[in-house]
Design a protein around this nucleic acid. Structure first.
Length: 267
DNA sequence: ATGACGGATCTAATCCGA
């Protein structure tokens, strides 16, 4: 017996609700964490999720931008939102889900993209991103109680093999040293297990995002690993599989991110 | 060589993503 958790930056949950339906029908994760829903709570397509067998829903959405959601086949409790950088944008939601080995706390994050220029003096968005990561690190105690899973679009590709060209991306937002070092520090200090890298060794390239701007994205394969699944050590030791659903990037009118599904033993 | 695209919005031109 195992339970599974998926994460997917959907880039508009309403526009792509049919893709979400397809994914849920095929992958059947116990919980799906969505980012960039771009949907106010009152307009969230709850019926579609209920019909798909995901009646337990936690949402934090706003009009046009950002937005996170957790939909689940299992009851959700202790639903909680944390605000970052004294802003009201919707970039975090948490909920507890039961498993046979005890409750699991899911934290779903959408870290700011950070804009174009990797310089906080000239680009406030980059400063916002660094401050967000720093606030996650400072508040680690809120996320790292045993039985926790942290997923989401962290918008940073920390390892050299998390991008198509380490050298060419060192000055590109998402892979600059100040970002990758910040994220790895947060990961190390929190004692997090990088669950994806337990199954795909760090020597191998691994991506979850391919730009819309590349017409031949599959052939050129200039991707990045921006989406992550982390677990506290107790759950990290229970991880049994990870799948990056690359084929979803070829679906009709796709998101530029693909789903990641992680399964954990609950024996 | 990142941006050649794509989404949302005060439906038209602009902001945003990464």
């Amino acid at each position: 017996m195992s339970f599974s958790v998926a994460t997917w930056n959907i880039n508009s949950v309403r526009l792509r609700i049919d893709l979400v339906r397809r994914f849920l029908a095929e992958a059947r994760p116990d919980a799906l964490c969505l980012q960039e829903t771009k949907c106010p709570d009152a307009l969230f397509p709850e019926n579609a999720f209920r019909e798909a067998g995901y009646p337990f829903i936690a949402i934090a959405g706003e009009k046009g931008y950002n937005g996170v959601a957790i939909v689940s086949r299992r009851p959700l409790s202790r639903i909680d939102r944390h605000l970052f950088c004294d802003r009201g944008d919707c970039r975090h939601i948490a909920a507890e889900m039961p498993t046979r080995t005890g409750p699991v706390m899911l934290h779903n994050f959408y870290v700011p993209a950070g804009g174009d220029e990797p310089d906080r003096e000239r680009n406030w968005k980059f400063g916002h991103k660094l401050d967000f990561i720093e606030e996650m690190r400072r508040q680690a105690a809120r996320y790292t109680e045993p039985g926790s899973i942290l997923v989401g679009d962290l918008n940073i590709a920390p390892l050299e093999t998390d991008v198509w060209s380490h050298k060419q991306l060192l000055k590109v937002v998402s892979h600059t040293p100040v970002e990758t070092e910040g994220l790895l520090r947060l990961q190390a200090e929190g004692g997090w297990v990088d669950v994806m890298r337990r199954f795909v060794p760090p020597e191998e390239k691994l991506f979850t995002w391919w730009s819309y701007r590349s017409p031949n994205w599959e052939a050129s394969d200039r991707g990045r690993r921006l989406d992550h699944v982390w677990a506290t050590p107790d759950l990290g030791a229970r991880a049994v599989s990870v799948k990056v659903l690359k084929e979803a990037r070829s679906w009709e009118r796709p998101s530029d991110h693909v789903p990641v599904i992680a399964a954990f033993s609950e024996e």
